[in-house]
Design a protein around this nucleic acid. Structure first.
Length: 326
DNA sequence: AAGCAAATCAACCGCCTGGGA
DNA sequence: GTCCCAGGCGGTTGATTTGCT
């Protein structure tokens, strides 16, 4: 016996959304909030599958979406995250404020894959195309994880890990593409952080060679709004004759969406909307470390538009390409 | 201007997971 | 422990747009 369909397919619309449908969906979610997607279409007067409504909202109607082209920094961040997480698009999207998993997935398949191939890098493994896959990966991963574990256990940050790694491994390929424990780690860490912390203390006594993945804080977070970007990019919608790209007025988006909830970021509460930035160390959950630069970055005019420097991309601390192939 | 191919991306599909009964 | 359901995810499709001849 098969699973019952998520909706009555015989009486649902498919294909591109009309403006009327978008308006109905937006109005409903404004009034009632997200959730209960199965019952939403009926309640909102839409002849759509609940999944379809969810997808439309998540990918196109949400007020905090950043539209327009990807920046070079975003490109590199996607590559870096993909090397860590593989095709975990939702996790990657969680690290790119205003971007959706679908958008990133499409962008990866259409742009970045080609870009990496042009660089001579296999997009799946993040290794040079002609590289020997097995020996390289194993040794490097072991070396890095051992180093990372050691440094973290000694209360150093991953900034040190990156630097140490760069200095000590001269012929390395750093890739976790096949290191499935990473994704486990993401999940486990969110589930049981306290246990993890105590485990770290215990791991102080473990042999260095033990396969321990770097304790990156890859917890998924909700992206902050990007109103300014949106206004700038809103004119880039396609000239399609069908209605696809809605132009949403966000000014009145209060209640559930415009009213910002403080975002929990690495144990520290931050407010992106107010222009506050968090440093790399804090983004990794290593707050109060010597690398914490939150206080200095708060008033910094040189901070990026996103104010977010995951993995030290903008500071070049952990330069993916320099680590990738030497 | 027309025809074709390639590129793009919105949307769908099926599977998986977690929570509740 | 099992079943059901809702939500979420990744892979894929197909309509549309863009670029080239």
């Amino acid at each position: 016996m098969g699973r019952s369909p998520c909706c009555e397919k015989a009486h649902t619309n498919k294909g591109a959304w009309t403006k009327e449908e978008d308006d109905r969906l937006i109005a409903y979610i404004r009034a009632h909030g997200e959730g209960c997607w199965r019952s939403l279409p009926k309640a909102a007067g839409l002849l759509r599958c609940g999944k379809s409504c969810r997808l439309r909202w998540i990918n196109y109607l949400r007020p905090d979406l950043k539209r327009g082209n990807f920046s070079e920094e975003e490109d590199e961040l996607i590559i870096k995250l993909h090397s860590l997480l593989g095709n975990k698009w939702s996790l990657i999207a969680g690290r790119l404020p205003g971007r959706t998993d679908n958008e990133i997935k499409n962008y990866w398949n259409t742009h970045i894959r080609r870009k990496l191939l042009n660089r001579g890098i296999d997009p799946a493994s993040h290794r040079p195309v002609n590289d020997n896959p097995t020996s390289h990966h194993t040794t490097t991963t072991a070396a890095i994880t051992a180093t990372a574990a050691t440094n973290i256990n000694n209360n150093h940050s991953l900034l040190d890990v990156a630097a140490t790694t760069t200095n000590t491994t001269t012929t390395t390929t750093i890739s976790f593409a096949n290191a499935t424990p990473i994704t486990h780690l993401v999940k486990d860490e969110a589930e049981d952080e306290d246990k993890h912390n105590s485990d770290r203390k215990i791991n102080n006594t473990l042999p260095e060679i033990q396969e321990i993945c770097p304790d990156l804080n890859l917890e998924l977070r909700i992206s902050p709004p990007h109103h300014h970007q949106q206004q700038n990019n809103s004119s880039s919608s396609s000239s399609s004759s069908s209605y696809i790209q809605p132009q949403i007025q966000h000014d009145n988006y209060d209640h559930h969406h415009h009213h910002q909830q403080p975002l929990k970021t690495g144990g520290r509460t931050s407010n992106f909307a107010s222009g506050t930035t968090i440093c790399f160390a804090c983004s990794l959950g290593i707050e109060n470390s010597k690398e914490c630069s939150c206080t200095t970055s708060l008033n910094s005019t040189s901070s990026s538009s996103t104010g977010y420097d995951f993995l030290g991309l903008k500071t070049g601390i952990l330069d993916y390409r320099s680590l990738e192939m030497k």
